[in-house]
Design a protein around this nucleic acid. Structure first.
Lengths: 221, 221
DNA sequence: CTCGGTTTGTTCTCAGGTTCACAAACTCCT
DNA sequence: AGGAGTTTGTGAACCTGAGAACAAACCGAG
């Protein structure tokens, strides 16, 4: 059987699996670019950096898209995962806080090619509102609500300093944004129903430092 | 009274806890800046965005640094966590790939204040080697091995395009680097004993898109 | 010194995620 | 057509992590 109607496909996929689906998607695209049209779970798993059992179990949550004894049709699986994630059409995104990091994000071509379209760059500093980055003019932060309504923006990116982040998040929520990617090194509090994901550069480094310390510990002693 | 010798303190801290220690550290620093010298697990947990039971359990892996009926001495706990993570002294770091993101990372002041010191910026493109970013000149990529040896660099950051990342990682490993923070959207393969952490902007957005899609699904139907 | 109030550290239980291992299902060759 | 060889999908065991709940330990008042 396996998912006759689209509405029945998405059931309850474990969070850990959801976090890996984009990795599989990227691996599949890479395979396509290399002209590979079929692959086994073993091959795809290697390309994605996981083991094959986990890959197969992850895919089994989406449905039964492989063929036993053969493997997976790369293009077909790619479409199915993209559909499951929801990146078959582009999502409009706004970026708030166009400092160093904001610039880098605005210029990042990967967003465009992976299902996202930057519709606006916002900054509270009037001095920055003269500039434009990769063809998009920087606009005043208080245009947020208008822009969100106009473009049906559902996803916001915060790249401001830490002290401004909570205020930006509050405005995003009142404007109707329900998914936030936060690069500011601070804990955001948002109402129920709003998703926040955090990317924190120095935390990642500190985690590495911890392990590094344990490695070198034995030697120096 | 728990952990006489330093060698006995660090035992086997769960990975999930390690990932949260930097968050606690930041919350403690914030409390210090607000002039708070003592706090309960409840207060610290709120500042860190976790629940208090989890916080207490996490801290219990490090030792017994609180006082029942009172709470935690903020400054003392801050030092203990910093020591556990290993950021009481600065770690030298090199950044390879000084494009948009590399620039942003090089300018990011948070590294400096959180236990890391950027000792070199490297790029393979000779055109970029004229520039200097936040006072550090960009040097040719093949200086890597010399720099790593000279400054005892243990941590490397990759901010190159995807196609160059594996080659950079290989060179880092041969130079003696054993911890890598990878911003390039690709899976790195490294020998045993080398840690890689990955930060992938579009994957984070895709995870948000998945949940966003599920939220809006009910409405549009 | 004792008692009430407070907060930590820890134990126990449960949920979620990973890995193993194998039956089911497919292809290809003879 | 049948059998050998592959590869998927999944049931079950195992491991890691989260949360509730409580005993142990501390403070301060009287």
């Amino acid at each position: 059987m396996t998912s006759r109607t689209p509405a029945e496909t998405a059931r309850d996929i474990p969070e850990a699996t959801v976090a890996r689906l984009p990795v599989y998607l990227r691996a599949l695209i890479s395979l396509i670019e290399h002209g590979i049209s079929t692959c086994s779970s073993e091959e795809l798993a290697r390309a994605a950096g996981v083991n094959s059992a986990k890959l197969r179990k992850d895919l089994s949550y989406l449905g039964s898209y492989g063929t036993r004894g053969v493997g997976y049709d790369v293009a077909y699986l790619r479409y199915q995962i993209a559909r499951e994630i929801g990146v078959t059409q582009d999502w409009p995104v706004v970026i708030v806080g166009i400092g160093n990091l904001g610039h880098a994000l605005a210029n990042f071509s990967g967003f465009r090619s992976r299902g996202f379209r930057v519709v606006a760059l916002l900054d509270a500093d009037p001095a920055r509102q003269e500039e434009s980055v990769s063809g998009i003019r920087i606009r005043p932060f208080d245009h947020l609500e208008t822009i969100v309504a106009e473009h049906s923006v559902a996803i916001g990116v915060i790249a401001t300093p830490a002290h401004a982040a909570q205020d930006v998040a509050d405005h995003m929520v009142t404007s109707g944004i329900r998914s936030i990617l936060n690069f500011a090194p601070t804990v955001l509090s948002v109402p129920e129903g709003v998703d926040v994901r955090k990317v924190d550069l120095s935390i990642e480094l500190q985690i590495l430092a911890y392990h590094e310390q344990r490695k070198t510990q034995g030697e120096s002693a």
